[in-house]
Design a protein around this nucleic acid. Sequence first.
DNA 1: CCGAAAATTTGCGGAGCCCGCAAGAACGCG
DNA 2: CGCGTTCTTGCGGGCTCCGCAAATTTTCGG
Lengths: 223, 223
Amino acid sequence: MSDGEIPFVTIEQHPSGLVTWRERKKQATREALADAAWKLACEVGPENVRVDDIAAAAGVSARTFNNYYSSREEAIFAQRIRWAEEFFHRASRARPADAPLHDVIAGALLEVHEGRSPDKATIRLIAATPTMQSEYLRHSVMTEFALAEIVAQRTGCDQLSARVVGGAYALAIRAASEYWLRDDSDLPLTDFLRTALDRVAPAARDLEASVRASHPHREAEPC
Amino acid sequence: MSDGEIPFVTIEQHPSGLVTWRERKKQATREALADAAWKLACEVGPENVRVDDIAAAAGVSARTFNNYYSSREEAIFAQRIRWAEEFFHRASRARPADAPLHDVIAGALLEVHEGRSPDKATIRLIAATPTMQSEYLRHSVMTEFALAEIVAQRTGCDQLSARVVGGAYALAIRAASEYWLRDDSDLPLTDFLRTALDRVAPAARDLEASVRASHPHREAEPC
DNA sequence: CCGAAAATTTGCGGAGCCCGCAAGAACGCG
DNA sequence: CGCGTTCTTGCGGGCTCCGCAAATTTTCGG
């Protein structure tokens, strides 16, 4: 493209923290592998994809695959996880620090899932494979920890309580997804999610109340 | 042994539903494999146990192992799961049908874990292995479903709500176990469990209340 | 008590996964 | 440009899990 002059290039230089070309290339390979893995899994089912196929589709050797991902399943989920994290942080960071805990979390979760209804048949195909279920569970547990972190920071409660309440929100997502997948009518995922989140709300409110009771004169969390 | 007379034998015949000798032998093999798997995993760490070792310790061929369990991890957990189920059903069935949901579940769970503090170092060794963590998660999800079943039957609420609240109790067990395992003081597991369960209580009470509100004139569940 | 039928065990072989290692290729920097 | 660092790749090995078919064991009717 264009006359090759002096490299005063590097337009839109390094949006994320990737400085050198090497690092960007690595990232590209990582994403190519994840994309190929997901694509192939959707086409023929996760259990019928070999790492050789994924590596070939991404243009690297099979051995290289294992330098990036330690299992087929991990690769298939990889960029989904990235998306989820990005959405999630974007949705939750913009909330006022003194809003009720439940409104913050439930609002962010609903916002993230709003209007997103990926092909149910495809998800069913993926979700039918046992090894994928395990990987999904791993992902769900990561979400538990992320949400526990937020609960702890927002309320200033003890870690175990935050773990339970934050984990309950992750559980709500998982349970809602399960029932959405089972369901044959065309109700959107958010309908299920709302029901599930409402069941967690009392626990969140009670946690806030009990923290406020034990910190009688404070309203902001310590730290 | 003893004078071989007519086979009026079969003393203490078939305590569980195992009728033929064949079935009892199968069960024995299954348990021998599970025991051997657990024992070896505790001794040298789960990752250093091969299925050959387990099979040899149980006196069968390696190929036979895979006729009973589809993975090393499954075998290591197998009888733990059996124990848990037995304890659990024994503890929960004896509760009155009209007792508050939280009291029933939390009481049963605390009763089951009361006084049981298996060697923390051993559990840590097992829990440190990633593949074991996945298997534990699988087990935890089974517990979620079992508890959801109980919630649904006791309250008569919709399935998704039962799934969330029941799952939250299973989550409480998992979270409490995590923190008990991390903890270096000698607090018993039940202390952590109590804290975790208390965080779930409001959700359970709210669920009961909302069901009662929508079934204004009934007090027993519809089936 | 025996022999056929059904169920179970076992060895063999194969398809894969994952990892360590060391050689070779690509890149970054002075 | 050349050297050190980092990444890729092929090879080999150890292991898992499964299908298949033969051998073995248990069951059951006569």
